[in-house]
């Protein structure tokens, strides 16, 4: 009961901040709303018992990634809003198609979860994470079952680093 109230409150906040991110006129305000959005998502992670992920969400996303977003906002000069009037009709058409896709997705999820027996879903959701520390479970899984993705992640980071240097340095 209490958890569902908390969940729906958080979900409402996440949706609200998400709408504010795309509607705010000032781009820096958008980024600030994005931070609030990330913090609410971190609280959802805490509710799911994924404390490690919640801390990482706050440290890396709300702390690090958003700084990058701010720099990008500052790098491109967005002092004025896009005053070249966008094609309203085309926008509404694209919006209609996207909304239809979203509706199809949600109804597919509803149908699928209704077809599946509820007990199987509950059994899949109730993983015994709380017996050992959350971080330790993550560590054991990441460094045994998901070893290859972990090593691939290092390659990804390397590519990101070299790419950033190549793009941003004046002379290599």
């Amino acid at each position: 009961m209490f958890e569902s109230i908390l969940f729906y409150t958080l979900a409402a906040f996440i949706l609200g901040f998400g709408v504010l991110v795309v509607t705010a006129r000032n781009t820096v305000h958008c980024v600030v709303f994005l931070v609030a959005n990330f913090l609410c998502v971190a609280m959802i992670y805490v509710m799911l018992g994924a404390e490690f992920l919640a801390i990482i969400q706050v440290l890396v996303y709300a702390g690090g990634i958003v700084v990058l977003y701010l720099f990008v906002v500052m790098l491109v000069n967005l002092k004025r809003g896009p005053d070249a009037a966008p094609d309203r009709r085309r926008q509404s058409r694209v919006g209609f198609v996207l909304a239809a896709v979203m509706l199809a997705e949600i109804s597919a999820i509803l149908v699928y979860s209704a077809a599946r027996p509820a007990s199987a879903v509950a059994a899949a959701a109730a993983t015994p994470l709380q017996t050992v520390g959350n971080t330790e479970v993550v560590g054991m899984l990441l460094y045994t079952d998901y070893l290859i993705p972990f090593e691939v992640a290092s390659m990804l980071l390397l590519v990101a680093m070299i790419g950033a240097i190549l793009l941003a340095k004046k002379e290599i």
Binding site: F52, G63, G64, T135, V138, M140, Y143, S154, L157, A160
Partner: peptide, 27 residues
Amino acid sequence: IRYYLIAMLFVIFDVETVFMFPWAVSL
């Protein structure tokens, strides 16, 4: 753009450190 470069390097090494926390706990 130099600020961006520093921020980018910071995030990359940040993520690298993040991977070391679960590793250190279950080493």
